[in-house]
Amino acid sequence: MAEDAPIKEKAPPISLAPKLSPTEWGVKAFFLLCAVSALGSMFLIMVFLFMEAGGLFFMSEEGPGVSLTEFFLSLDWYPTYPDPSYGSLALVLGSLSVTMVSIVLATPFGIGLAIYLSSVAGPKVREWLKPAVELLASIPSVILGFVGMVAVAPFMQNVLDLPTGLNVLNASIFLAIMATPTIASLGDDALSAVSQTVKDGSYALGATRWETISRVMLPASLSGLSTAVILGLGRALGETIVVLMVAGGSAQVPHSLFDSVRPLTSTLAAEMGETAIGSPHYHALFALGALLFVLTLGFNLLAFHLARRWGRSSS
């Protein structure tokens, strides 16, 4: 066939990657634009939060700007006083207290539920329980806050003989109820991803069900479970209406579970409606918002990082 053809250098291989027609290219660009919109929103949120927050720290007609030291380290949040002070520390501690207590409650509950869903429940039960957990997650927070306020607070106040039922513990209970489905559902995904062959290996060596769960499945899905807990934590930290209605609302450093606190989120929700746009108070609230944003972003990035590592190691 080709024997008598003149010997010539063969052309190097060409790439076959499809070339898009202008229409196709336009369509792809449009979808890319949509995909970037989430990223763009994140960016815009940051820009607006920090821009508005910046107003607190710079000189204005209203007077000299607030110092960063005061904002971060002062316990005094008195934005409406004639001589206002804008310390966020008590609010941050308020947020951290309810978040930490709620996560202490929600972690065993959520992980237990995840274990039950992934390895204990039969397929029939699982088929019903998983949607039920999803429904629990979809109860609006204002309703949980309402129940905490109207039902649990008076009960707590009477039974424990407290000055108020609107306190760290009550808020934490309802935050835990909100965080549990997140932890349970993500935890179930992580546990279910452990391969059957590994489990069979453990059973074949004479391990019981719990021994298999605790010594094989939990270690294997540890980073997935951590991701679940961290995302639950982020959700509790950012939750607004429950703490606004149930945490009591006093801007103080809590000393016990029964003190009332004023977390960052509830401060924002309670005060933003009553402040003049552009006032120092308005800017101070945006500064709180920016702080909250950075805190939750930190948790989310950590969870994203863990999830990626988990994705890599399990595949």
Partner: peptide, 14 residues
Amino acid sequence: SNLAGVPSVVFGLF
């Protein structure tokens, strides 16, 4: 995924 984690009250501010 980070947009999903932004607290709802921050969306309100934004």
